[in-house]
């Protein structure tokens, strides 16, 4: 019964995915566009020949669907076909051929194109061809490092502080107003402050991750610690446990699932925020990669990066989910 449901769910998931692919494919489908050659009148041919264009070049242009006006423009520049191809082809000069014009209308890449891009990117994920052209693996490495550092620093601060706040109702009352004010501030709002204070974009992005990670952990830790069952604390009291032993062997394991849930929430948020932060900061990282591919109109590559962000986020969440599982207990 249980396995039946798992299998049905898996089949249904695959079905939804295929449906999604199908819709995507149909939405971006375009018929093979055969470029219709433009017939030039003898008058026009004479003009082009007068401008010094060879007959074979002229044939090529017209067969690619360029109009007379466009061909004439090329002729007036005095360039041969070889020159143009060396300079990057007709498109580099702003000439759109009949086929290219069609593509620009429905520019969204098809699933096959994204798949090709994914294969290309993943076959060499760590390539490095200059500052603006690095592999997705390298980009991820930087993003994960920033998230890891910011998150780690936040754990170091938030868990002990949350523990203190949870143990002391006085501290709780004194600090909660600040936490409640700081929590709803978008972490990106801190970015200019961090850039001004730290004057280093790398450290500033780590700081932004630190700030956004700290609140869920702080709140969850203090909540978990403050809500340890009174019975368990009474047991520790009747056994004359020291404060430290009570904290270590009763409160910490009792609050561990809540603390790790806080960490899990924090890490998810950190992964959301890093993409935005990197778009703003630039340089390197998946966020910047997405933005850079958009600027270069490499949509297939951009969509591939978006999928990768989702998959990495899922992996991070599952990892923390495992910790929650390990430390949870059935009461």
């Amino acid at each position: 019964m249980k396995y039946d449901r798992i299998i049905t769910a898996a089949l249904l998931s695959v079905g939804f995915f295929l449906l999604f692919l199908a819709v995507w494919h149909i939405g971006t489908y375009q018929e093979e566009h055969t470029v219709e050659a433009v017939e030039l009148t003898s008058e026009q041919v004479a003009i082009l020949e007068e401008a010094g264009m060879s007959a074979s070049d002229k044939e090529t242009y017209s067969s690619q669907g360029l109009t007379f006006d466009q061909i004439n423009q090329i002729a007036s520049m005095g360039l041969t076909l070889d020159d143009i191809e060396m300079a990057g082809g007709l498109e580099a000069f702003g000439f759109t051929t009949g086929g290219a014009a069609e593509e620009a209308k429905t520019g969204f890449p098809s699933p096959a194109l994204v798949w090709e891009e994914a294969y290309y990117q993943l076959s060499d994920p760590f390539y490095d061809r200059g500052p603006n052209d690095k592999g997705i693996g390298t980009q991820l490495k930087y993003s994960l490092f920033r998230v890891g550092m910011g998150f780690f620093l936040a754990v170091i601060v938030a868990v002990p502080l949350g523990f203190l706040i949870g143990m002391s109702p006085l501290l709780n009352m004194a600090l909660m107003p600040y936490i409640q004010i700081l929590k709803p501030i978008s972490p990106l709002a801190w970015l200019p402050v961090a850039l001004f204070l730290i004057k280093d974009s790398e450290k500033a992005s780590i700081f932004v991750i630190f700030v956004c990670s700290i609140w869920p952990m702080l709140i969850n830790t203090s909540f978990g610690v403050a809500n340890v069952k009174n019975d368990w604390l009474n047991i520790a009291k009747t056994l004359e446990c020291s404060k430290f032993r009570t904290a270590y062997s009763v409160i910490l394991p009792a609050a561990a699932p809540t603390i790790f849930t806080g960490m899990r929430i924090s890490l998810s948020i950190a992964w959301l925020v890093i993409v935005a932060a990197e778009m703003v900061i630039g340089g390197i990282g998946v966020g910047y990669f997405v933005w850079n591919e958009w600027n270069g109109l490499n949509l297939a590559s951009m969509i591939f990066a978006i999928f990768i962000i989702g998959i990495v986020g899922l992996c991070l969440d599952l990892t923390l989910g495992q910790f929650v599982k390990i430390f949870s207990y059935e009461d």
Binding site: K229, I235, K237, E240, P253, A254, Y329
Partner: peptide, 19 residues
């Protein structure tokens, strides 16, 4: 004055540490 090891307590709901 205060709890001590001289006085063991069995609570109504077992209150064992579940982990």
């Amino acid at each position: 004055s205060g709890p001590s090891l001289d006085k063991a307590v069995v609570f109504q709901n077992h209150s064992l540490l579940p982990w």
